[in-house]
Amino acid sequence: MGKVRKLVVEVVAAHNLMPKDGQGSSSAFVEVDYDNQRSRTRTAEKTLNPVWNNERLVFDVPNPMNLHNQVLQIYVWHEENPPPGRKFLGKVKIHGSTIVKQGVDDVLKFNLERRSIFSYIKGDIELKIYTFDEEEKKKSGGGGGEKIQQIEWKEKEVKQEKQETKEEEKPEKQEKAEKQEATEKQEKAEKQEATENQEKPEKQEAPEKQEKAEKQEKAEKQEATEKPVLEVKDEPFSFMDH
């Protein structure tokens, strides 16, 4: 019998996660994708610092010689109650070239990354990642030794993927719409302010013109009143004067 290469991800713990349950906490689980295989941990209920106690997720490595060219995707999710809804808490991308063999593995800490510019992410996750060789006969489920728990979502995968995509995109779209609305409101306020500033001098100028006209009119009336009137005296006409 030959040997089969296995890839193991031991999920240790996470720290300082974003609250997502609306009550200041989260119920987190970790999901790992590798080479079209997907496994997840149990859910750590109501904590921003979940501990999984080195829960192990195992994957087949079909082509060990190509492992250094492959990528391991680690996702942290908040599980909605009731499931299967979930919210994004962060991700980590690990290249196969950094994966070691069993025996030289250490606990590694990774800062969680955001998915897009609209994601609000914080915290980190601790993992142990390594490979080992297993006898091929164990592949048939022969048991013995150490049994590694693996959770596969196959029957519900298509339906759940669609629902997850909608749930994941909803906050981002809502955030984007809110930002766009805020930008439009700001632009509208700026335009209104510019219009008001433009109209303000005109409004100020109108009373000044009116006041000036009233003063001029008043001065003209006063001048007309004070102007001397030429008096014409009627003298008796006499032929002797001629």
Rank of each mutant, 00 (worst) to 15 (best):
D60F: 08
D60G: 01
V61H: 09
V61S: 08
N63D: 14
P64A: 04
P64V: 06
P64R: 03
P64L: 04
P64W: 11
M65L: 15
M65E: 15
N66L: 15
L67I: 14
L67C: 09
L67D: 09
L67A: 14
H68I: 14
H68Q: 15
H68G: 00
N69C: 07
N69F: 06
N69K: 11
Q70I: 01
Q70M: 02
Q70E: 12
Q70H: 04
V71L: 05
V71R: 02
V71C: 03
L72T: 12
L72Y: 03
L72P: 01
L72C: 11
Q73A: 11
Q73K: 02
Q73Y: 13
I74V: 10
I74N: 01
I74R: 00
Y75G: 06
V76N: 01
V76K: 07
V76D: 03
W77I: 08
W77V: 00
H78P: 02
H78E: 01
H78N: 12
E79V: 06
E79I: 05
E79P: 07
E80L: 09
E80P: 00
E80A: 13
E80M: 02
E80T: 12
E80Q: 11
N81K: 04
N81H: 11
N81L: 10
N81R: 10
P82K: 02
P82R: 10
P82E: 13
P82G: 05
P82N: 10
P83S: 03
P83R: 00
P83K: 03
P83Y: 04
P83W: 02
P84M: 14
P84V: 15
P84Y: 06
G85W: 03
G85F: 05
G85T: 07
G85L: 08
G85I: 02
G85P: 01
G85Q: 07
G85Y: 05
R86S: 10
R86I: 03
R86F: 09
R86K: 15
K87C: 07
F88G: 02
F88D: 06
F88K: 01
L89Q: 06
G90V: 09
G90C: 04
G90P: 01
G90T: 09
K91N: 05
K91V: 12
K91L: 10
K91P: 03
K93Q: 08
K93I: 12
I94S: 08
I94D: 06
H95Q: 13
H95E: 14
H95M: 14
H95Y: 11
H95W: 10
G96Q: 07
G96C: 10
G96L: 06
S97T: 09
S97F: 08
S97M: 13
S97W: 08
S97G: 09
S97Y: 06
T98L: 08
T98C: 02
T98A: 08
T98W: 07
I99T: 02
I99K: 07
I99G: 07
I99M: 04
V100Q: 15
V100E: 15
V100R: 15
K101T: 14
K101P: 03
K101D: 11
Q102L: 12
Q102D: 12
Q102F: 14
Q102Y: 10
G103V: 05
G103I: 06
G103C: 08
G103Q: 08
G103R: 04
V104M: 09
V104I: 08
V104K: 12
V104R: 13
V104H: 15
D105S: 11
D105F: 00
D105I: 00
D105T: 05
D105E: 12
D105V: 05
D105K: 10
